[in-house]
C-alpha cells in the first residue's frame, strides 16, 4: 500500500509545476498509469483525489490507463501480456521485453486561463 506516498509525490510535482507557471486555479490533474506499472489505480486515484481536495478545491483527477505491449526476444512476435511474466503466445518463450504498460507519470495539468498569458 504505497499508493498514498506515490500520490504525495504527484502533489509535490503538481505544486512545482503550478509555481513554475505562475499559479492559477487547478482544474484537472492527468496521470498516465500503465497496467503493469505495479500501481493499484483505484487506491492511487482515491489517495490523490483526497490530498488534492485539501489543497485545490474542485480539482479532478484523470487517469489514463496504458495497455501492456511486449515483444518476444526469441521469435520477435508482438503480444499483449497479462502479467510481467506472460510467455510469448507465438513460441512459448519467457524471454520477452515489455515495451508499454509500465508508465507512471504526471502527464498534464489544466488550470483556469490567465488573461495575460497566451
Amino acid at each position: 500500500m504505497h499508493e498514498l506516498s506515490l500520490a504525495c509525490s504527484v502533489v509535490e510535482l503538481v505544486d512545482n509545476e503550478l509555481h513554475r507557471h505562475g499559479g492559477g486555479a487547478l482544474r484537472t490533474v492527468e496521470v498516465t498509469v500503465g497496467d503493469l506499472s505495479g500501481v493499484d489505480c483505484e487506491a492511487f486515484a482515491y489517495s490523490l483525489q483526497m490530498i488534492l481536495d485539501r489543497r485545490y478545491a474542485g480539482v479532478r483527477v484523470a487517469l489514463t490507463r496504458v495497455s501492456p505491449r511486449a515483444r518476444c526476444l526469441t521469435c520477435g512476435g508482438m503480444f499483449e501480456p497479462a502479467s510481467i511474466y506472460t510467455p510469448c503466445p507465438h513460441c512459448g518463450s519467457y524471454s520477452t521485453q515489455l515495451l508499454e504498460g509500465q508508465e507512471f507519470r504526471l502527464s498534464s495539468l489544466t488550470v483556469e486561463a490567465d488573461e495575460d498569458k497566451p
Binding site: L6, L13, R105, S107, L109, T110
Partner: peptide
C-alpha cells in the same frame, strides 16, 4: 482553461 504539459515520471525525485 490552460493546458500545461508535464510528462514527468512520478518517481523522478
Amino acid at each position: 482553461t490552460v493546458d500545461i504539459a508535464v510528462e514527468q515520471d512520478i518517481l523522478s525525485d
